[in-house]
């Protein structure tokens, strides 16, 4: 497959971008993953969901994991959030190894997981109250966070009355209110329609710019990955290993116009090549049956 345009290499970085990455790498390491493996035992035998992953995430970095379905993206994020345990290897947050889920590692799930019996405000207050914060203080903090995600008008409403995008904004506010060190988002916009998804991406970038939080993002949408991230981890399936770690050459601040910039397209092309490698068995096509000849010679 040859491209009609001459795209620059995705490895080429403008000086501003290169400078940014240099600074980023000098920041303290927030999350360190060392020789992480996860095996599942199925009746058919052992499955290597993840094999010997090594990477590190710096403070306030936006890192995305992308890969074909079944590559262990969700397994990885669940292990990092403490909801699953690795078979071997280590995950360290701020240099300390961790056990089980905790408030330092917030998580936003694809299916919203708001507590349906609590109003929007009470949902955001949940983590604060669990920590033992007084009701008054928790309430005022929750209101601040709702202000940030633009939902203060809906504070008293139950989640079931909100649209998908609004629900996900509440879920993000709820996690951020806890002031986590790192926020994990597992395909958070996967269930949203294209327009809502686009505006949610902008929302997330805006919030991230204003809040000191490291973001670990899982998606299968290539545009989303390039648009949001500093770096992209490309996983491959069977066994789940890091295929490539890409530094996105698209300068910040990001805006929708950049979707057609050469750096953006080059990065996206690279991702596409990695995830859908030059169609290994392209001869295998779906058999088609045409029932009637239309006969208008339009093929």
């Amino acid at each position: 497959m040859s491209s009609p345009f001459e795209l620059p290499s995705y490895l080429e970085q403008s000086t501003a971008v290169a400078d940014r990455f240099r600074k980023l790498h000098n920041r303290p390491i927030k999350l360190q993953v060392h020789q992480l493996s996860k095996e599942f035992h199925s009746p058919k035998g052992k499955v290597n969901a993840l094999r010997e992953l090594n990477f590190q995430i710096h403070r306030r970095e936006f890192i995305t994991v992308i890969g074909p379905s079944g590559c262990g993206k969700t397994t990885l994020i669940r292990i990092l959030a403490g909801l699953d345990f690795p078979s071997s290897g280590q995950v360290m947050l701020d240099g300390k190894s961790m056990k089980g889920p905790s408030a330092e590692r917030g998580m936003v799930f694809q299916d919203y997981t708001l507590f349906p019996w609590l109003s929007v405000k009470k949902n955001v207050m949940f983590g604060l109250e669990v920590k033992g914060m007084g009701k008054m203080k928790a309430e005022s903090e929750a209101m601040e966070w709702l202000e940030i995600v633009g939902l203060s008008k809906f504070a008293e409403v139950y989640p079931s009355q909100l649209s998908g995008g609004m629900k996900q904004r509440v879920a993000i506010a709820r996690s951020l209110a806890n002031r986590p060190e790192i926020l994990f988002l597992d395909e958070p916009f996967g269930a949203l329609d294209a327009q809502t998804r686009a505006s949610m991406q902008d929302y997330l970038l805006k919030i991230w710019r204003n809040v000191d939080v490291t973001i670990f993002f899982v998606t299968h949408d290539l545009d989303e990955a390039v648009y949001l991230s500093d770096r992209i981890i490309v996983l491959k399936a069977n066994p789940g290993e890091i295929d490539e770690l890409i530094e996105v050459p698209v300068p910040r601040p990001r805006s929708p116009e950049q979707f057609l910039s050469p750096e953006f397209l080059a990065t996206k092309k690279r991702l596409e090549d990695l995830i859908r490698p030059a169609d290994s068995n392209s001869n295998e096509t779906v058999p088609m049956i045409r029932l009637t000849e239309i006969g208008d010679e339009v093929e």
Partner: peptide, 18 residues
């Protein structure tokens, strides 16, 4: 009860009793 609600609460710092 949806397990994901429990997981969400855990990532918000809830202990077993909570």
């Amino acid at each position: 009860l949806e397990k994901s609600l429990l997981e969400a609460a855990q990532t918000l710092g809830a202990n077993r009793r909570q």
